[in-house]
C-alpha cells in the first residue's frame, strides 16, 4: 500500500502527463484538415497512454490488460456517443455544448451496461 505522500505524487504526475498528452493530440486536431480527419484525434488514446504507462510500472502488466479489456467496451460506447452527438447537431441543430453534454449520460449508461453484461 503506497503512503499518502506517494499517492499524492502519483496523482500530480498523472495530472501533468495526462494534460500534456491530451494537449499534444488537441493541437494535432487543431491544425489538421479536413475537419472530419482532425476529428479522429478527438478519440485519441491520450488519457489511456498516460494512465496505462504508469499502471505498467506500478501495478504490472496483468492490471494493464484488465484496464485494456474494459477500455475496449468504453471505446465502443464512445463511438456510439459520437454518432448520437453528430445526429443531434445535424438533424436537431443542437449547440455543441448541449449535444456533447446531454449525451454524456448515454455514454455512461452504455459503457456500464456493456461492462455489467460482458465482464460482470
Amino acid at each position: 500500500m503506497p503512503s499518502k505522500r506517494a499517492q499524492k505524487m502519483d496523482y500530480v504526475v498523472r495530472f501533468v502527463a495526462g494534460g500534456l498528452i491530451v494537449s499534444a493530440f488537441a493541437i494535432l486536431g487543431d491544425v489538421l484538415r479536413p475537419k472530419s480527419f482532425a476529428g479522429l484525434f478527438g478519440a485519441a488514446p491520450s488519457i489511456a497512454l498516460a494512465t496505462l504507462t504508469m499502471a505498467a510500472f506500478r501495478q504490472g502488466n496483468g492490471y494493464v490488460s484488465i484496464e485494456g479489456r474494459s477500455m475496449f467496451l468504453g471505446a465502443i460506447a464512445l463511438s456510439l456517443y459520437c454518432v448520437v452527438v453528430c445526429q443531434l447537431l445535424m438533424r436537431f441543430r443542437f449547440s455543441a455544448v448541449t449535444a456533447t453534454g446531454s449525451s454524456l449520460f448515454l455514454w455512461l449508461v452504455v459503457a456500464l451496461s456493456f461492462k455489467q453484461t460482458l465482464i460482470g
Partner: peptide, 30 residues
C-alpha cells in the same frame, strides 16, 4: 454546428480505432 458535426463524425471513426488500441493492450499487455 456543421463543423462540430464533422468533428463528431471523425471522432466516431476514431472511437473504433480506440477500440483497436484497447484490444491490442488487452491481448498483448500480459
Amino acid at each position: 454546428t456543421d463543423a462540430a458535426a464533422l468533428d463528431a463524425s471523425g471522432a466516431a471513426l476514431g472511437g473504433i480505432g480506440l477500440a483497436a488500441f484497447a484490444l491490442a493492450v488487452w491481448l498483448l499487455a500480459p
